[in-house]
Design a protein around this nucleic acid. Structure first.
Length: 405
RNA sequence: GUGACCGUAGCUCAGUCGGUAGAGCUCUGGUUUGUGGCACCAGUUGUCGCGGGUUCGAGCCCCGUCGGUCACCCCA
């Protein structure tokens, strides 16, 4: 028997219904916010992710499905969605004209990690990217949209926000932090002493207790923001307050992808195990430039579909469609059933049982597939050119001419 | 990459002190010669993950291996 690869899952039956329902719900809401669909390749040049997600990130450092293809290209299965969308945006030269562009996407992402609850090697994200709008109102608008999606799906969450500063205030802060950390390097954990050089900001959210103790007097990012970032961050909080979206400021919310700046946020669920982030995103005003475009501000998010699947409550499914069967083996009866099915399928779902069997068995079968109508041809009906129909919901039964039903 | 736990029927699991495997669910049929869901009755189903070892004898004990799950790390 051949099994699916480690960390890769088949999605079927009720899970599949939830999967589709989640995407449809999110799509509908994204469209209402003015987003258009974009589909980008699952396979991209490796350097796209090195330059966007960042070499210091775990994703690029150790989790990529990377290989050399038959044309000697260094390629990767995408580990996240934003990089590809930005690449497409720049490739289509949309950065050359002053317009806002808003895209939504969904699909498979790949990270070579050790699987656990809520963490798969192939998983699916729904995401949105908004280009060309620098206003913090757009950050707020995106958070509102995610709120709408989770509300529509009936999912509870807590929202965490932070500001990562901009190219003006982040570099000096970063230098301050390095200056603060360097004397303590020997006392920090192995990862953190390495991070001082590669990505000192990440030291802030280290889970190591000793590191956290040492960080107690570290300069705080939120207290070193430039006036613009400071006022934008406050505006965002005011907007959230006035729309009664509960949130907490989490100064340790740093995010593992290097391209974020200014607003960063994460939606967290307490009901799904330790991998609790169900959606995350923020602003990435420099990324278009990193990928050879003009300077275009942007903000976006992604939500993990598998992570919320258990939390999605499907609208209660009603009986639907027709079950067709016969109790006879007579010549021509299957042809009649197929013709009837084709006609009825213009309107609704139709399934045919090929095996002649007792009425009781047919009713059981119709009940099992949750059909609204059970329609069966027996001896008496066949001789009259009729079919017997029972509405399984109202329990009404009647007979009709086959051609007229 | 590190650690813990678990692999027995299609699914969920039980299996005592080591003595050649069992329940519920599902499925099929019947109780009703043409009336669903509920109930009752009957029937079908096994490489006990794999390999080796100990033993008269291993689902059970030991070693190895593969797979799964969860957690750390990281992230959606």
């Amino acid at each position: 028997m051949i099994n699916a690869l480690r960390g890769m899952k088949d999605i079927a039956f009720e899970e599949a219904d939830k999967f589709i329902y989640t995407i449809e719900t999110a799509t509908q809401i994204a469209k209402r916010y003015g987003y258009q669909y974009i589909e980008t390749p699952l396979l991209e040049e490796t350097k796209l992710f090195k330059r966007s997600v960042g070499e210091s990130s775990d994703i690029v450092g150790k989790e990529m499905y990377q290989f050399i293809d038959k044309g000697q290209n260094d390629v990767c299965l995408r580990p996240e969605g934003t990089a590809g969308v930005v690449r497409a945006y720049v490739q289509a030269k949309l950065d050359r004209r002053p317009r806002k562009d808003k895209f939504y996407y969904y699909g498979a992402m790949f990270r070579y990690e050790k699987p656990q609850k809520g963490r798969l090697r192939e998983f699916h994200q729904f995401g949105c990217e908004s280009f060309g709008e620098a206003s913090v109102y757009e950050d707020f608008n995106i958070i509102l949209m995610i709120r709408d999606i989770f509300d529509a799906l009936g999912i509870g969450y807590t929202l965490k926000i932070n500001s990562l500063g901009c190219s003006e205030c982040m570099p000096p802060y970063r230098q301050n932090l390095i200056a603060f950390l360097t004397p303590k390097e020997a006392l920090l954990c192995e990862d953190c002493s390495r991070r001082i050089a590669t990505n000192p900001i990440r030291v802030l959210d280290c889970k190591n207790n000793q590191c956290q103790t040492l960080l107690h007097d570290a300069p705080k990012l939120t207290q070193n923001l430039c006036p613009t970032c400071q006022s934008d961050f406050q505006t965002l909080q005011k907007l959230l307050d006035s729309s009664s979206i509960a949130y907490e400021v989490d100064t340790h919310l740093v995010r593992g992808l290097d391209y974020y700046n200014k607003s960063a946020f994460e939606f967290v669920s307490s009901q799904i195990g330790s991998q609790s982030a169900i959606a995350g995103g923020g602003r990435y005003d420099r990324l278009v430039e990193f990928l050879d475009g003009k300077s275009v501000p942007a903000v976006g998010f992604a939500l993990g579909i598998e992570r919320i699947l258990d939390l999605v409550t499907l609208p209660t499914s009603k009986r639907e469609g027709i079950y067709l069967g016969s109790m006879l083996t007579q010549e021509g009866i299957m042809e009649t059933l197929f013709a009837l099915a084709s006609r009825k399928r213009q309107q609704t779902k139709v399934e045919i049982e090929y095996e002649p069997k007792s009425l009781k068995s047919h009713l059981k079968g119709a009940d099992k597939i949750n059909a609204r109508y059970c329609a069966v041809i027996g001896e008496d009906e066949w001789s009259q050119g009729e079919i017997w129909i029972k509405d399984l919901e109202t329990k009404e039964e009647y007979r009709a001419k086959i051609e007229e039903w």
